[in-house]
Protein backbone atom coordinates (compact mmCIF):
# COMPACT_ATOMS: atom_id res chain seq x y z
CA UNK A 1 0.00 0.00 0.00
CA UNK A 2 1.36 3.37 -0.99
CA UNK A 3 0.90 6.44 1.18
CA UNK A 4 -1.83 7.55 -1.19
CA UNK A 5 -3.62 4.21 -0.82
CA UNK A 6 -3.44 4.44 2.95
CA UNK A 7 -5.14 7.81 2.89
CA UNK A 8 -7.69 6.68 0.33
CA UNK A 9 -8.54 3.81 2.66
CA UNK A 10 -8.96 6.24 5.54
CA UNK A 11 -11.26 8.39 3.41
CA UNK A 12 -13.43 5.32 2.76
CA UNK A 13 -13.47 4.49 6.47
CA UNK A 14 -14.09 8.12 7.36
CA UNK A 15 -17.11 8.30 5.08
CA UNK A 16 -18.61 5.32 6.90
CA UNK A 17 -18.15 6.88 10.30
CA UNK A 18 -19.17 10.24 8.92
CA UNK A 19 -22.44 8.85 7.59
CA UNK A 20 -23.17 7.38 11.00
CA UNK A 21 -22.33 10.62 12.82
CA UNK A 22 -24.44 12.57 10.34
CA UNK A 23 -27.51 10.40 11.00
CA UNK A 24 -27.00 10.85 14.71
CA UNK A 25 -26.29 14.58 14.44
CA UNK A 26 -29.58 15.12 12.60
CA UNK A 27 -31.48 14.07 15.71
CA UNK A 28 -29.70 16.68 17.82
CA UNK A 29 -30.26 19.34 15.22
CA UNK A 30 -33.97 18.64 14.57
CA UNK A 31 -34.83 18.87 18.25
CA UNK A 32 -32.54 21.80 18.96
CA UNK A 33 -33.88 23.70 15.95
CA UNK A 34 -37.38 23.64 17.39
CA UNK A 35 -36.94 23.55 21.17
CA UNK A 36 -33.40 24.95 21.62
CA UNK A 37 -32.90 21.89 23.77
CA UNK A 38 -29.79 19.72 23.74
CA UNK A 39 -31.27 16.25 23.99
CA UNK A 40 -28.65 14.13 25.74
CA UNK A 41 -30.94 11.10 25.85
CA UNK A 42 -30.20 10.86 22.13
CA UNK A 43 -26.78 9.32 22.94
CA UNK A 44 -28.31 6.26 24.45
CA UNK A 45 -31.34 6.03 22.19
CA UNK A 46 -28.66 5.37 19.55
CA UNK A 47 -27.04 2.74 21.78
CA UNK A 48 -30.41 1.06 22.43
CA UNK A 49 -30.94 1.12 18.67
CA UNK A 50 -27.82 -0.94 18.09
CA UNK A 51 -29.16 -3.59 20.51
CA UNK A 52 -32.60 -3.57 18.92
CA UNK A 53 -30.86 -4.18 15.59
CA UNK A 54 -28.72 -6.93 17.10
CA UNK A 55 -31.74 -8.79 18.47
CA UNK A 56 -33.73 -8.29 15.29
CA UNK A 57 -30.92 -9.88 13.30
CA UNK A 58 -30.78 -12.70 15.85
CA UNK A 59 -34.50 -13.21 15.41
CA UNK A 60 -33.69 -13.96 11.78
CA UNK A 61 -31.28 -16.61 13.03
CA UNK A 62 -28.24 -14.49 12.36
CA UNK A 63 -25.42 -14.13 14.84
CA UNK A 64 -21.74 -13.43 14.50
CA UNK A 65 -20.29 -13.57 11.03
CA UNK A 66 -21.14 -17.21 10.29
CA UNK A 67 -24.36 -16.87 8.33
CA UNK A 68 -23.93 -14.98 5.11
CA UNK A 69 -26.88 -13.94 3.01
CA UNK A 70 -27.03 -12.70 -0.56
CA UNK A 71 -29.53 -11.35 -3.03
CA UNK A 72 -33.14 -10.85 -2.01
CA UNK A 73 -32.95 -12.52 1.43
CA UNK A 74 -30.12 -10.11 2.35
CA UNK A 75 -32.03 -7.08 1.13
CA UNK A 76 -35.18 -8.25 2.89
CA UNK A 77 -33.47 -8.93 6.21
CA UNK A 78 -31.70 -5.57 6.15
CA UNK A 79 -34.86 -3.67 5.22
CA UNK A 80 -36.85 -5.30 8.01
CA UNK A 81 -34.04 -4.76 10.52
CA UNK A 82 -33.73 -1.09 9.63
CA UNK A 83 -37.52 -0.66 9.77
CA UNK A 84 -37.90 -2.42 13.14
CA UNK A 85 -34.94 -0.62 14.70
CA UNK A 86 -36.03 2.79 13.47
CA UNK A 87 -39.61 2.25 14.59
CA UNK A 88 -38.55 1.15 18.07
CA UNK A 89 -36.08 3.98 18.64
CA UNK A 90 -38.49 6.49 17.08
CA UNK A 91 -41.14 5.36 19.52
CA UNK A 92 -38.72 5.63 22.45
CA UNK A 93 -37.94 9.20 21.37
CA UNK A 94 -41.63 10.06 21.14
CA UNK A 95 -42.19 8.53 24.57
CA UNK A 96 -39.41 10.60 26.13
CA UNK A 97 -40.93 13.73 24.62
CA UNK A 98 -44.55 12.93 25.30
CA UNK A 99 -44.30 11.76 28.90
CA UNK A 100 -41.32 13.69 30.26
CA UNK A 101 -40.19 16.68 28.24
CA UNK A 102 -43.65 17.96 27.28
CA UNK A 103 -44.46 18.49 30.94
CA UNK A 104 -41.35 20.65 31.24
CA UNK A 105 -42.09 22.70 28.11
CA UNK A 106 -43.16 25.80 30.02
CA UNK A 107 -40.37 25.52 32.60
CA UNK A 108 -37.53 27.95 32.06
CA UNK A 109 -33.95 26.99 32.83
CA UNK A 110 -32.07 23.72 32.59
CA UNK A 111 -34.80 21.34 33.87
CA UNK A 112 -35.52 19.81 30.46
CA UNK A 113 -31.84 19.39 29.58
CA UNK A 114 -31.07 17.78 32.95
CA UNK A 115 -34.01 15.46 32.38
CA UNK A 116 -32.50 14.31 29.09
CA UNK A 117 -29.23 13.55 30.89
CA UNK A 118 -31.20 11.57 33.47
CA UNK A 119 -33.04 9.60 30.79
CA UNK A 120 -29.74 8.93 29.05
CA UNK A 121 -28.29 7.37 32.22
CA UNK A 122 -31.47 5.39 32.84
CA UNK A 123 -31.30 3.87 29.34
CA UNK A 124 -27.58 3.23 29.81
CA UNK A 125 -28.11 1.39 33.09
CA UNK A 126 -31.15 -0.55 31.91
CA UNK A 127 -29.09 -1.96 29.05
CA UNK A 128 -26.12 -2.61 31.33
CA UNK A 129 -28.29 -4.48 33.86
CA UNK A 130 -30.27 -6.48 31.33
CA UNK A 131 -27.79 -7.46 28.60
CA UNK A 132 -24.65 -7.06 30.65
CA UNK A 133 -21.36 -5.25 30.37
CA UNK A 134 -19.84 -7.61 27.81
CA UNK A 135 -19.16 -6.54 24.30
CA UNK A 136 -21.72 -8.22 22.06
CA UNK A 137 -20.73 -9.68 18.74
CA UNK A 138 -22.90 -8.08 16.08
CA UNK A 139 -24.34 -10.23 13.33
CA UNK A 140 -23.03 -9.34 9.92
CA UNK A 141 -24.81 -11.21 7.14
CA UNK A 142 -23.03 -9.30 4.35
CA UNK A 143 -20.88 -11.31 1.95
CA UNK A 144 -17.29 -10.10 1.96
CA UNK A 145 -17.28 -8.63 -1.49
CA UNK A 146 -14.35 -6.30 -1.95
CA UNK A 147 -13.29 -4.07 -4.82
CA UNK A 148 -9.72 -2.91 -5.05
CA UNK A 149 -9.26 0.77 -5.77
CA UNK A 150 -5.54 1.04 -6.24
CA UNK A 151 -4.20 -0.39 -3.01
CA UNK A 152 -7.27 0.52 -1.02
CA UNK A 153 -10.24 -1.77 -0.69
CA UNK A 154 -13.87 -0.84 -0.92
CA UNK A 155 -16.14 -3.38 0.73
CA UNK A 156 -19.77 -4.13 -0.01
CA UNK A 157 -20.43 -3.05 3.58
CA UNK A 158 -19.08 0.45 2.88
CA UNK A 159 -21.24 0.86 -0.19
CA UNK A 160 -24.28 -0.36 1.71
CA UNK A 161 -23.71 2.08 4.58
CA UNK A 162 -23.33 4.95 2.10
CA UNK A 163 -26.44 4.05 0.15
CA UNK A 164 -28.61 3.60 3.23
CA UNK A 165 -27.37 6.85 4.79
CA UNK A 166 -27.81 8.77 1.55
CA UNK A 167 -31.34 7.45 1.09
CA UNK A 168 -32.28 8.36 4.66
CA UNK A 169 -30.78 11.84 4.41
CA UNK A 170 -32.41 12.55 1.06
CA UNK A 171 -35.73 11.33 2.43
CA UNK A 172 -35.38 13.56 5.48
CA UNK A 173 -34.45 16.56 3.36
CA UNK A 174 -37.45 15.95 1.13
CA UNK A 175 -39.69 15.57 4.18
CA UNK A 176 -38.55 18.80 5.82
CA UNK A 177 -38.53 20.73 2.56
CA UNK A 178 -41.75 19.65 0.86
CA UNK A 179 -44.27 17.96 3.15
CA UNK A 180 -46.85 19.92 5.09
CA UNK A 181 -45.62 18.78 8.49
CA UNK A 182 -42.01 19.34 7.36
CA UNK A 183 -42.80 22.93 6.46
CA UNK A 184 -44.55 23.30 9.80
CA UNK A 185 -41.33 22.07 11.44
CA UNK A 186 -39.30 24.74 9.69
CA UNK A 187 -41.84 27.43 10.50
CA UNK A 188 -41.94 26.38 14.14
CA UNK A 189 -38.14 26.46 14.32
CA UNK A 190 -38.14 30.02 12.97
CA UNK A 191 -41.00 31.43 15.06
CA UNK A 192 -42.96 29.03 17.27
CA UNK A 193 -45.61 31.52 18.31
CA UNK A 194 -46.31 32.68 14.77
CA UNK A 195 -46.46 29.06 13.59
CA UNK A 196 -48.98 28.32 16.29
CA UNK A 197 -51.10 31.25 15.13
CA UNK A 198 -51.10 29.81 11.59
CA UNK A 199 -52.90 26.81 13.10
CA UNK A 200 -49.84 24.57 13.51
CA UNK A 201 -50.25 22.09 16.37
CA UNK A 202 -46.80 22.65 17.81
CA UNK A 203 -46.92 19.55 20.03
CA UNK A 204 -47.39 17.40 16.94
CA UNK A 205 -44.47 19.07 15.22
CA UNK A 206 -42.23 18.48 18.22
CA UNK A 207 -43.28 14.84 18.41
CA UNK A 208 -42.47 14.43 14.72
CA UNK A 209 -39.01 15.90 15.26
CA UNK A 210 -38.36 13.47 18.11
CA UNK A 211 -39.64 10.52 16.09
CA UNK A 212 -37.53 11.32 13.03
CA UNK A 213 -34.40 12.15 15.02
CA UNK A 214 -34.64 9.02 17.15
CA UNK A 215 -35.44 6.82 14.14
CA UNK A 216 -32.29 8.10 12.43
CA UNK A 217 -30.34 7.37 15.63
CA UNK A 218 -31.65 3.81 15.43
CA UNK A 219 -30.40 3.54 11.85
CA UNK A 220 -27.08 4.90 13.13
CA UNK A 221 -27.01 2.19 15.80
CA UNK A 222 -27.47 -0.52 13.19
CA UNK A 223 -24.75 1.00 11.03
CA UNK A 224 -22.44 1.08 14.06
CA UNK A 225 -22.93 -2.66 14.49
CA UNK A 226 -22.42 -3.42 10.79
CA UNK A 227 -19.27 -1.31 10.69
CA UNK A 228 -17.56 -2.41 13.92
CA UNK A 229 -19.08 -5.93 14.19
CA UNK A 230 -19.85 -5.35 17.87
CA UNK A 231 -21.99 -3.32 20.17
CA UNK A 232 -21.92 -2.54 23.86
CA UNK A 233 -23.78 -0.46 26.42
CA UNK A 234 -20.86 1.99 26.28
CA UNK A 235 -21.06 3.08 22.65
CA UNK A 236 -23.55 5.93 23.19
CA UNK A 237 -21.25 8.39 24.84
CA UNK A 238 -18.30 8.42 22.44
CA UNK A 239 -20.33 8.31 19.24
CA UNK A 240 -23.01 10.60 20.70
CA UNK A 241 -20.54 13.25 21.75
CA UNK A 242 -18.84 13.19 18.36
CA UNK A 243 -22.19 13.42 16.60
CA UNK A 244 -23.23 16.28 18.83
CA UNK A 245 -19.94 17.95 17.94
CA UNK A 246 -20.79 17.37 14.29
CA UNK A 247 -24.15 19.10 14.74
CA UNK A 248 -22.51 22.10 16.40
CA UNK A 249 -19.72 22.18 13.82
CA UNK A 250 -22.24 22.30 10.97
CA UNK A 251 -24.43 24.83 12.77
CA UNK A 252 -26.85 23.36 15.27
CA UNK A 253 -30.45 23.59 14.12
CA UNK A 254 -29.34 23.39 10.48
CA UNK A 255 -30.18 20.13 8.66
CA UNK A 256 -27.56 20.23 5.85
CA UNK A 257 -25.11 21.49 8.50
CA UNK A 258 -25.55 18.32 10.55
CA UNK A 259 -24.87 16.18 7.46
CA UNK A 260 -21.76 18.16 6.53
CA UNK A 261 -20.56 18.25 10.14
CA UNK A 262 -21.01 14.49 10.47
CA UNK A 263 -19.02 13.70 7.34
CA UNK A 264 -16.24 16.09 8.37
CA UNK A 265 -15.97 14.63 11.87
CA UNK A 266 -15.82 11.12 10.40
CA UNK A 267 -13.06 12.09 7.98
CA UNK A 268 -11.13 14.02 10.61
CA UNK A 269 -11.30 11.03 12.91
CA UNK A 270 -9.86 8.53 10.43
CA UNK A 271 -7.39 10.77 8.64
CA UNK A 272 -6.29 12.48 11.86
CA UNK A 273 -5.77 9.08 13.48
CA UNK A 274 -3.66 8.03 10.50
CA UNK A 275 -1.45 11.09 10.79
CA UNK A 276 -1.09 11.43 14.53
CA UNK A 277 -2.38 8.19 16.02
CA UNK A 278 -5.78 6.76 16.85
CA UNK A 279 -5.58 7.57 20.54
CA UNK A 280 -5.38 11.24 19.58
CA UNK A 281 -8.68 11.16 17.67
CA UNK A 282 -10.70 12.99 20.29
CA UNK A 283 -8.03 15.61 20.79
CA UNK A 284 -8.03 16.32 17.06
CA UNK A 285 -11.82 16.33 16.72
CA UNK A 286 -12.43 18.63 19.62
CA UNK A 287 -9.49 20.91 18.77
CA UNK A 288 -11.06 21.45 15.34
CA UNK A 289 -14.44 22.05 16.97
CA UNK A 290 -12.97 24.67 19.30
CA UNK A 291 -11.14 26.39 16.45
CA UNK A 292 -14.20 26.49 14.22
CA UNK A 293 -16.38 27.84 17.01
CA UNK A 294 -13.89 30.52 17.98
CA UNK A 295 -13.84 31.85 14.43
CA UNK A 296 -17.39 30.90 13.40
CA UNK A 297 -19.48 30.68 16.57
CA UNK A 298 -22.62 29.69 14.67
CA UNK A 299 -20.90 26.74 12.98
CA UNK A 300 -20.06 26.22 9.32
CA UNK A 301 -23.57 26.64 7.86
CA UNK A 302 -25.29 28.21 10.86
CA UNK A 303 -26.56 31.71 11.33
CA UNK A 304 -25.64 33.69 14.37
CA UNK A 305 -28.52 34.48 16.72
CA UNK A 306 -31.52 33.19 14.82
CA UNK A 307 -34.09 35.93 14.68
CA UNK A 308 -36.81 35.05 17.15
CA UNK A 309 -38.18 38.43 18.10
Amino acid sequence: MTVFDVYLQQVINGLNLGAMYALLALGFTLVYGILELINFSHFNVFMVGSFVALYTLEAFGLSGQTVILAGLPLVGVLLVTFAVTMTVTGTIGVGIERFLLRRLRAVKGPAAMITTIGVSYILFNIVLLTVGADTHNFANPLPTVTWAIGGASLRLRDVLIWIVSAVLMIALTYFVQYTKIGKAMRATAQDPEAARMMGVEVDRVIMTAFFLGSALAGAGGLIFGLYYNFTSFLIGFTAGLRAFTAAVLGGIGNVPGAMLGGLLIGLVETIGSQIIGASWADVIIFAILVLVLVFRPAGLLGRIAPNKS
Partner: peptide
Amino acid sequence: APVLEARRLFPRMTVYENLEMGAYT
Protein backbone atom coordinates in the same frame (compact mmCIF):
# COMPACT_ATOMS: atom_id res chain seq x y z
CA ALA B 1 -56.45 34.76 11.27
CA PRO B 2 -53.74 37.06 12.60
CA VAL B 3 -51.54 39.72 11.05
CA LEU B 4 -48.91 39.81 13.73
CA GLU B 5 -47.04 42.73 15.18
CA ALA B 6 -43.78 43.34 13.31
CA ARG B 7 -45.16 40.95 10.64
CA ARG B 8 -43.41 37.87 12.01
CA LEU B 9 -42.98 36.15 8.67
CA PHE B 10 -40.89 32.99 8.59
CA PRO B 11 -37.72 34.68 7.35
CA ARG B 12 -35.95 31.62 5.93
CA MET B 13 -38.99 30.40 4.04
CA THR B 14 -39.99 31.74 0.66
CA VAL B 15 -42.90 34.11 0.21
CA TYR B 16 -44.86 31.25 -1.34
CA GLU B 17 -44.11 28.98 1.62
CA ASN B 18 -45.25 31.73 4.00
CA LEU B 19 -48.54 31.88 2.12
CA GLU B 20 -48.78 28.10 2.36
CA MET B 21 -48.32 28.36 6.11
CA GLY B 22 -51.19 30.82 6.16
CA ALA B 23 -53.36 28.14 4.55
CA TYR B 24 -52.17 25.52 7.05
CA THR B 25 -55.68 24.70 8.29
